[in-house]
């Protein structure tokens, strides 16, 4: 009885937490729309929106990559509950980012789009990252997980090259200040480096 009660409390707690994270992850979008409607995005709202959405896609991707290290380093298992959601949020912000670029910056002008996607290295890096993330988003459901079996894990390792391309996309856009990029770069180096470290240790053991 006591055990059952504790279990159900924990369940309810988990559901509440899941919703909390779900709503918190929507907050950047809500704030952005609010700023837009209040005319607080300045003379070039398109650029601000594109940059913000892109940055949030990056942040959510990094958060998704932080779940496994959190478990390994601190035996912190709770975040595992949110990994799929965070990954899908990264994709969600990436989609909004891409749609914003197409609509607000390029005006869906075919000539401009073709040039951007074929000639600009930073666009190519970002676009390829998006293409890599697409199958991961599609196969993120439990159904696909069972259907693919062990292949699912290998497929989802695409997130590593995708994250490196995302960083490259970010860095290649910079005109002068590298502080922000350095921060994201160091974080990614840590998140990927720790995986390398664990893989090696596991092999030698």
């Amino acid at each position: 009885m006591l055990v059952a009660q504790k279990f159900s409390n924990l369940r309810w707690g988990s559901i509440a937490q899941w919703w909390l994270v779900f709503l918190a992850a929507l907050l950047p979008l809500v704030l952005l729309v609010d700023a837009l409607l209040a005319n607080r995005l300045g003379a070039d709202p398109a650029k601000t929106i594109v940059d913000e959405l892109g940055t949030w896609a990056l942040i959510f991707l990094w958060l998704t990559l932080a779940i496994t290290p959190a478990r390994r380093l601190f035996n912190w298992r709770k975040p595992l509950l949110f990994r799929r959601m965070l990954g899908l949020y990264a994709f969600f912000y990436a989609v909004l980012h891409l749609v914003s670029v197409g609509t607000f910056i390029l005006g869906w002008r075919a000539d401009l789009i073709v040039r951007e996607v074929t000639e600009r290295p930073y666009v190519i890096a970002g676009f390829v990252a998006f293409l890599l993330l697409m199958p991961l988003a599609v196969t993120s459901t439990r159904g696909w997980q069972t259907r693919l079996g062990p292949k699912w894990r290998s497929l989802h390792r695409l997130v590593y090259p995708a994250s490196v391309l995302v960083l490259l996309h970010f860095v290649w856009l910079i005109r002068a200040s590298y502080a922000e990029a350095l921060l994201y770069g160091l974080l990614l180096a840590f998140l990927l480096g720790i995986r390398l470290y664990y893989t090696r240790n596991w092999r030698t053991r």
């Binding site: 837009l36 398109a46 607000f104 401009l112 600009r120 290649w172």
Partner: peptide, 17 residues
């Protein structure tokens, strides 16, 4: 890193870039 063939005349709005 980017094209100079076109420009965005500011202030631009979202639906009229």
């Amino acid at each position: 890193r980017w094209s100079q063939a076109t420009e965005r005349r500011l202030p631009a709005s979202l639906l009229n870039p």
